[in-house]
Every structure is written in structure tokens, then in C-alpha cells.
Design a protein around this nucleic acid. Structure first.
Lengths: 345, 345
DNA sequence: ATGAAAGCGCTAACAC
DNA sequence: GTGTTAGCGCTTTCAT
């Protein structure tokens, strides 16, 4: 079934069929209708390869993820569902517009990165690329994409440079989490920050500080930090627990560190949420299976991916590229790890 | 960077470059070397679209999954990592051979199914398709693929028909699980079967029965069944618990049902594994986060997907299509839900 | 062993 | 408005 068959069937030229398929203007409605009827009856669907060859789009969007980390997550089978959520948002949005999303793993190792990426681009000729951390902040990749004149969205990075920047509102998320605890009556709210290498670590701390200040509460001694690992979370929690006046609530910057805090709390005889309230960041499946299930800030990965795809497709259609970073709102999901502080507190 | 540039650079014709790229015979080594040098230096990578247009492969393999179930799993964020495991096995194996894996969701609803699939095939012109349940057992899809002369592998179905059949050895898995319990000293081993609609439900029961028979144990009353849902698992467990002589160990046909059994056990004062041993099937992340983490049969999804891709690519290269079902071995991962039966038992 | 020519299915640019 | 032409980058023939 090629465009020729449809043209013959409808008794028109190839071009007219092409115009109808691509919804171009300048075809008489009556004619368009006839052609569409042939298309439907014959079940014609244009070949993406041929469209691409004709100088049109490839209808392919690449979702670039860090190879090492992604494979490690898959192998570990700990429930990390980043890729799934990307597919959920990205693939479905692609499908709505006749696009496909192709997941591509790229090494962070800088020797290969350029060749790998160039190879994927040459082979697939994607219409757009979605960058996730740490690639979204990698100048090498960003410049390469820019040089290739490919539209791309950078998720989770606001560092200067080309490409549309898309972030989940980390500062606001931390603020919301803090406000939730303040509303419950907590006054000593600890925060376990992530590593400084991640731009978002700072944003989250900022949000917490701001909310504390707004509530007239002091942050002194209440900030600990880790590197997103379980062990570092445990150490941070130990520091906070050891305070002369320990916090009645703790916000952890990611699931692993918060889980570690929960563990240590249990081991040291603190009940959650009766003695200690806990809020996590990320909301991977692992924490809703914890005991108790943790109240958490949900990373809107699916929404961000959907947005990224939309932005790319809109850009292709001629819409101007937004210059300022775009924000996707994160939300707080209240589960059973937050409650009012102990009466004495 | 097109083949022309390479040809010009190497001072040869397009054909010669094409031959070198496709590793065809009949090029003088010295010549091939020179061409390859140009390719490397220019960083040339053939365009998949153009290759496809030229009548060659598309280097694309489609992984077909059930739309409704897959999206539901993604949204639920319960840690179901079927797609991730498919990507882990399938995508990496594809990459080794210069192929890409594209995940495609297809409705089971039979009105659309044919058009959807035909559309995807026409648009992408994939070199092969991987079918997962329930599609792998769907005659409509199977026949359609056969008619389109596309190579495909059916994972998890052994019903007659075209396509390579690839199964995870369910009977053997159930046998291994049962034998593990027998070895621990259990004599009353219950089994919660899955719904009859799934071919694999029967295989699993078969394996259990066979192992019980080999050990000289009776199965009477010890078989309950559910529909893979949490609720049905709970009901089945209740039946088994109510037996005059209840089992000291239970094997559940999937994670949800086994988890339900664990819950009911806890509620009714049975300790796992001290009073009751439990083995699950599937091994999604959820059960390693349970308390205690469950001993389980691991579904080798990644391995099966990798195998499926290999079979397709080998078929493309001219290897004969295996006629008999191919089996991928499942393994038992021992965690903390199995122990010796209580002294009195 | 290498090259030249034709064509894959489609779209762009240009005619009519 | 609609049809015609040329060409995208590659792989097939078929010549040499």
C-alpha cells in the first residue's frame, strides 16, 4: 500500500494525496474527502522512512538516558520507574501526534559520548531529543545537539545554554512539604539535603528555608546532607537525632535517604508518625510499600516528559522556543508517615 | 555525511562503500580498509530511513504490549517492571546488532487491533515483532503478522500457529519451588493457581503436582485457585488455612496472590516463615520489599526478550525458524519467607 | 573486484 | 486547486 495505490484509487495525483495526508491547505474539501475515503478503505499509512527521505520529518523523538545508571536500575529491580514514567508521558503524547519515542542509552563517559550520540542521530535522524539528568546539564551534548540543529528539551537542568529547559519545581515542592508539616504543628523540621553536584539539591533546600522563615521558625542545626545514598541518609538522620532538641519531623531529599531515616528511627525506638513525621522526595514505588507508606513529594516525570514531547512537536510546527525555564508542578501525596508532633513537642 | 561523501573521500564508487558498510564479500581487503578509514574519519553512519528505502532492513524491532494493562501498571506505580525488563534484555541485544527496539502499545479490543497493528507496521516497517501475553496467543495478530511475512516471536504462548514460541519454563519452575519446600521438610504444600485462561496457569499446577508425586506426597485439598488478583489470593489463602490439616507452606502463582496470603497469615497470627513458608511467582520488585522478603521464582523476562531479539535477527540472517517451543529457564531466588516447617508439623 | 543505472515512497518546488 | 518534476540516501540489479 503506497501513496501510488491511493492516488490511482482516488483518481488523483500523488501530490494531492500527500497534501491530504499532511493536512495541507489548498485542497478542495470535496476532493480531500474523496482521497480520505480511499485512504481509509485501503488502510493506507505513510511509511516513515519514505517521508523522511522526501525531506519531511522522521516522526521519531529520542529520549536520552544515562546508560550506566539506567541499566543498574533495571538490574537491581528495586522498583525505580523513571523510564516507565517517561514512557507513560512521552510515548502517549508522541502517539497522539503520530510520533514514536525511542529510548536511547548513552554513556556519560566523554570519550564515547560524542560518537554515540552522533551515530544515533545519523541513523535515526530524530526530529527532537529529550535530555534527562545528567545529560541535560552536559555542555558537550547540548552544544552538539545545537550544532546539529535538532530541537531538544532539557529536563532537570536550568544551567544556561540552548535547548528548552524544563524543571520540576523543586523549591516549591520543598516549600509545600514544609508547610504541610508546619500546618500539622511541627516547629522543629529537619531537612536532609542531596549532594551539591545536583542543581536541584540547592533548590530544595531553598524551598525549605523559605517556608521555615515564613512560619517564623529557625533552621539552625536542622540541615543535614547526604549524597542520595542509603548510607549517607542514615548518617544524616543520626546527626539530626543526636541534636539536643531533635526535630519532630524530617524531610529527606530522596527516597533512599528517607527510607534510611525511617529505618534508623525504628531501630532507635521512634514511632513513625507518632514520634517522628517523615516526608520523602521522588515517590518511587519503594516508599509506598514501606511501613508506614511515606508521605512524599511526587516527581511529575510523566507530566514532564509529556510536556517535553509537546514542546518539541510545537517547535517543529513553528512555535517559538521558550527562553525561560518551564516549570512542572510537583505535588505532595499524603500517606501515613506524617502526623501531629508528640504532645510534649 | 552521506555515502557520497565517503565515496568521494575514499575515491571509490557508492557501491563499494555500501559493500564495506554491509560487510559484503567481494571487496579487496586493501580497498575495504581504505573505505573503512574514510568512514571512521568522517564519522559516517548510514541513515536507517535510506537503507529501508533502498530495499534493505529497517533495523527496527517492535515490542508489542497490551495497552490497557501496561498503562495501568505505569500509572499504579506499584513497581511492576515488565517493560523495563523487556528493555533490559531486548534493547541491549538490539543495540549489539545495530537494531533499535520500539515499544508499541496495542489494544486488545478487537475492533481496533487489526488497524492499529497494520498502521504500526506500515509506518515503521519493522524487521521483526515480539509478542507478549495476551497478544502472543491472539490468532488475529499471529495470522496478520504471518500474512505480512514479518518474523515474530511469541513470548508466553505455546498454542499452535506460526511464529517462534518462547516460554519461560513454568512447569519446571513450579517443580523447583515445590522441591525446595520438600527439601526443607514440608509435607503439606498448598498451591494457589492462576486463572485457567492463561496457558501458564496449568503448567504451573502440573509442575507442583509432579514434584509432590515424586516426593510421595498427596495434593488432595491443597490446590486452591484465584484470578491473579489480590482479593482472589486472599480468598484462596483463607480456604487453605481453613483445612482440617492446613498446609505448612504455600506457593502462590503470582506476586499479588502470594502477598495477599502473607497479609492474611499475619492477620491470623501465623508467622512467616516460622509457621508458614511462602513462595511467590514472578518476582516483581514489590515482593523483595515485603516483610519478610519473599522467596520467589524469578520470571526471566530480560533473558526471554534478549532471546527473542536474537531469534529474530538470526532469522533475518537466514537461520531456519525453530519449530518447537523454546524454553528459558526460570530460577528460584531464596529469600526469607521459607524455612523448615514448625516442629509439630 | 568495481562501477553505473534504476528505483524504493515520499515531499519540495515549480508549473499549469 | 491540482499535476508534474526532481531528488532525498541507499540498495538493488546489471555491466564492466
Amino acid at each position: 500500500m503506497t501513496i501510488k495505490h491511493v492516488a490511482a484509487d482516488a483518481g488523483v495525483s500523488l501530490q494531492t494525496v500527500s497534501r491530504v495526508v499532511n493536512k495541507e491547505t489548498g485542497v478542495r474539501p470535496q476532493m480531500a474527502e474523496r482521497v480520505q475515503a480511499s485512504i481509509d478503505r485501503l488502510g493506507y499509512v505513510p511509511s516513515i522512512a519514505a517521508q523522511r527521505m522526501g525531506g519531511s520529518r522522521s516522526y521519531l523523538i529520542l529520549a536520552l538516558n544515562d546508560r550506566e545508571r539506567t541499566i543498574a536500575d533495571w538490574r537491581a529491580r528495586q522498583g525505580t520507574d523513571w523510564v516507565d514514567q517517561m514512557l507513560l508521558g512521552g510515548m502517549l503524547t508522541c502517539a497522539e501526534h503520530g510520533y514514536r519515542l525511542i529510548v536511547e542509552l548513552v554513556d556519560t563517559h566523554s570519550d564515547h559520548i560524542e560518537r554515540e550520540l552522533l551515530g544515533a542521530i545519523a541513523a535515526l535522524q530524530p526530529d527532537g531529543v529529550i535530555l534527562t539528568p545528567p545529560h541535560s546539564g552536559n555542555p558537550l551534548i547540548i552544544d552538539l545537539l545545537e550544532a546539529q540543529d535538532i530541537r531538544f528539551v532539557r529536563i532537570g537542568s536550568i544551567s544556561e545554554g540552548p535547548g528548552v529547559r524544563l524543571m520540576m519545581d523543586d523549591a516549591r515542592a520543598a516549600r509545600i512539604a514544609t508547610e504541610h508539616l508546619v500546618a500539622l504543628g511541627h516547629r522543629r523540621i529537619g531537612f536532609i539535603a542531596g549532594p551539591a553536584e545536583y542543581e536541584l539539591s540547592g533548590w530544595r533546600v531553598d524551598g525549605w528555608r523559605a517556608a521555615m522563615a515564613d512560619a517564623g521558625l529557625a533552621c539552625t542545626d536542622l540541615l543535614a546532607s547526604g549524597d542520595f545514598s542509603h548510607a549517607s541518609g542514615r548518617a544524616a538522620a543520626r546527626t539530626l537525632f543526636a541534636l539536643p532538641e531533635p526535630p519532630t519531623a524530617i524531610i529527606g531529599s530522596n527516597d533512599q535517604m528517607t527510607l534510611a531515616t525511617l529505618e534508623l528511627a525504628r531501630e532507635t525506638g521512634r514511632r513513625v508518625p507518632e514520634d517522628l513525621s517523615l516526608i520523602s522526595f521522588d515517590d518511587t514505588p519503594i516508599i509506598r510499600l514501606a511501613h508506614p507508606p511515606l508521605t512524599a513529594i511526587v516527581q511529575p516525570i510523566a507530566e514532564a516528559s509529556a510536556r517535553a514531547v509537546s514542546l518539541i512537536i510545537a517547535g517543529l510546527a513553528g512555535d517559538p522556543t521558550p527562553d525561560a525555564p518551564i516549570t512542572v508542578a510537583a505535588e505532595l501525596t499524603v500517606r501515613r508517615s506524617t502526623a501531629r508532633p508528640p504532645a510534649s513537642g
